[in-house]
Computed example of a mutant assay.
Amino acid sequence: MELSLEDLSIIKALKENPQITQKDLAVKVRKSERSIKRKTVLLQEKGFIKRESGKRNGKWIVLIDNSKAN
């Protein structure tokens, strides 16, 4: 699997708090909100994460075990 350290930090944060917003995620991993939006789209396209139950009241589902992603 081709995951950067940035990807891994995003996945870790999503596992810790599946209801986190992209805005809060950006603060947590110290990236811009735009970078987080771009990265979450890419991670969804690659099948690593998905969004369940919509944008406002949804949650993130991590589809991989990040201990295997190293």
Rank of each mutant, 00 (worst) to 15 (best):
K15F: 06
I11N: 06
S35A: 08
L5Q: 10
L8Q: 05
E45S: 09
L25N: 01
K23R: 12
S32R: 14
D7F: 04
R38D: 12
A69E: 12
I20G: 00
K37R: 15
I36F: 06
S4H: 00
S4M: 03
N57R: 14
S32F: 11
D65A: 05
T40E: 02
R51A: 12
R51T: 10
L42D: 15
L25I: 12
V62H: 01
R34S: 04
V29L: 01
E16F: 03
E52C: 13
K15L: 06
G54P: 15
V62M: 00
A26K: 11
I49F: 00
G54R: 09
I36Y: 02
T40S: 03
R30I: 11
K50R: 12
A69W: 09
F48D: 03
E2W: 06
R34T: 02
G58I: 13
Q19K: 13
R30L: 13
K28F: 13
K31I: 15
Q19G: 01
G58V: 15
N66P: 10
S4N: 10
F48L: 13
N66Y: 09
I36A: 01
E33N: 14
S9K: 09
L63M: 01
E16T: 09
K59D: 09
D24F: 10
L42M: 11
G58Y: 12
R38Y: 12
K31S: 14
M1G: 14
V41Q: 13
A69T: 11
E6R: 07
N17P: 05
K68S: 01
I64M: 08
K28Q: 15
G58S: 13
A26T: 15
R38T: 07
S4W: 00
K55N: 02
E33C: 04
L63W: 00
E2I: 09
N66H: 09
K46C: 07
K50D: 06
I10A: 00
P18E: 00
M1H: 11
I64Y: 02
K31C: 14
A13S: 08
R34H: 05
V27P: 04
K50L: 10
I10F: 07
K59H: 12
S53A: 13
F48N: 08
D65C: 04
K37N: 10
E16G: 02
I10W: 04
K68P: 04
L42R: 15
A69F: 12
L3N: 12
R34L: 01
P18M: 01
K46M: 06
S32E: 14
K50E: 04
S53K: 15
K12A: 10
L43N: 14
K15N: 01
K39P: 10
Q22G: 05
P18H: 00
S67K: 08
V29M: 02
D65V: 08
E52T: 11
K68E: 03
E45A: 07
I10R: 00
Q22H: 06
